[in-house]
Amino acid sequence: MTREIRELTCIVCPVGCRLRAAVEDGQLLDVEGNSCKRGAEYAQAELCAPKRTVTSTVRVYGGFLPLVPVRTLEPIPKHRIGQALIEMAKARVNAPVDIHQVVVADVAGTGVDVIASRSMPEKAG
């Protein structure tokens, strides 16, 4: 069984506690260095199932700008970010685009959609 100590900085609040977490087989055993309960929860999430909101751009046909910014509707597992970015890189969307329109559905098999984070009108003229 592998037991290891992982160090991380809590980002729940501006204090930024340095956490030392003991992990065994992907299970969090113990956290030190946190000054509140949320620190332990953060360590639990970060070490066992870290997730991130991913923001990027998707190419637009006929848009006011050549790209529309996008984000995942919810945070996705960290290890799916690479695949998600590639799917966003491959995607194309036609203008006009509405804000929060789904641009890539179920990105990287996460069940989370990628949505436009602004509206993108058509190119004038």
């Binding site: 910014p69 804000i99 984070s117 602004r118 509206s119």
Partner: peptide, 8 residues
């Protein structure tokens, strides 16, 4: 929010 959403 993202910057563009905040702006919008």
């Amino acid at each position: 929010l993202t910057g563009p959403e905040y702006a919008e």
